[in-house]
């Protein structure tokens, strides 16, 4: 099964960027830089002002990836999927929500924060804004694999014919409120998405192929993280 990589975008603590800019993402520890709204959206998502940081960087990386492919604008819905790997998900918002729920038996708990207490909300916000109706869910992201599990599932969706285009990526905003970091956490935060397609040959930047349970780049190199595809 051959898959075309047709674009990508990222947000890191160093900078944001797109694959076709010829830039390479620099993964760095620290809070990711969020691009100015006008630089990545023709009009901001409806609830943008309510986004938590996890949602902000996830949507920004998806917006950059779609812009990179020229698919950031649409009049009607499109069956494009979004699969994201994440380790902490929306843990910061979970803690912030619970802080509002612990007093007065929870009657003043924040409904807005509760709406962001699932890791898939970031990609669903992107699905709403960009009118994408394919599968959207998150998968776990063991240390060092930033985006690999999402990439494997995205290729499964393409090879089964479920979708012809899928955005696969990684989002992690961490949490300053979390007392105990996960084992091996190197403090790198950010988001990165690439657009994979079995169509759009004319937009192809590189190819990958699935052999048994492995993903291989066009050169035959085994792919182990999303970074292998954008550098």
């Amino acid at each position: 099964m051959n898959v075309n990589v047709i674009g990508g975008g990222w947000v890191t603590a160093f900078k944001w960027g797109r694959m076709t800019d010829g830039l390479k993402p620099v993964m760095a520890a620290g809070d990711p830089l969020v691009p100015p709204v006008e630089e990545i959206y023709s009009s901001p998502p409806v609830r943008y002002r309510r986004f938590d940081s996890y949602c902000q960087i996830g949507c920004a990386a998806i917006a950059l990836a779609l812009k990179d492919t020229g698919m950031d604008r649409a009049e009607s819905t499109r069956p494009i999927g979004i699969i994201a790997s994440t380790r902490y998900g929306c843990f910061e918002t979970d803690l912030a929500f619970y802080a509002t729920a612990r007093e007065e038996e929870g009657i003043y708990a924040s409904p807005n924060l509760f709406a962001f207490t699932l890791p898939g909300i970031a990609i669903s916000e992107a699905a709403i804004h960009f009118k994408l109706t394919g599968p959207t869910f998150t998968v776990g992201d063991p240390i060092g694999q930033r985006g690999y599990n999402a990439l494997c599932i995205a290729v499964d969706l393409l090879s089964s014919g479920t979708c012809r285009t899928v955005l696969a990526g990684w989002i992690d905003a961490g949490s300053r409120l979390l007392k105990q970091k996960a084992a091996g956490d190197d403090g790198v935060r950010g988001a990165m998405f690439i657009a994979l397609s079995t169509a759009h040959e004319e937009k192809t930047i590189r190819h990958i192929r699935q052999e048994n349970s492995e993903l291989l780049a066009g050169s035959g190199m085994k792919i182990t993280t999303l970074m292998d595809l954008v550098t």
Binding site: Y98, A101, A109, A115, T117
Partner: peptide
């Protein structure tokens, strides 16, 4: 959990 009950309750 209190987390879930409070969240769905305020929604």
């Amino acid at each position: 959990t209190r987390f879930a009950v409070a969240g769905f309750s305020v929604l």
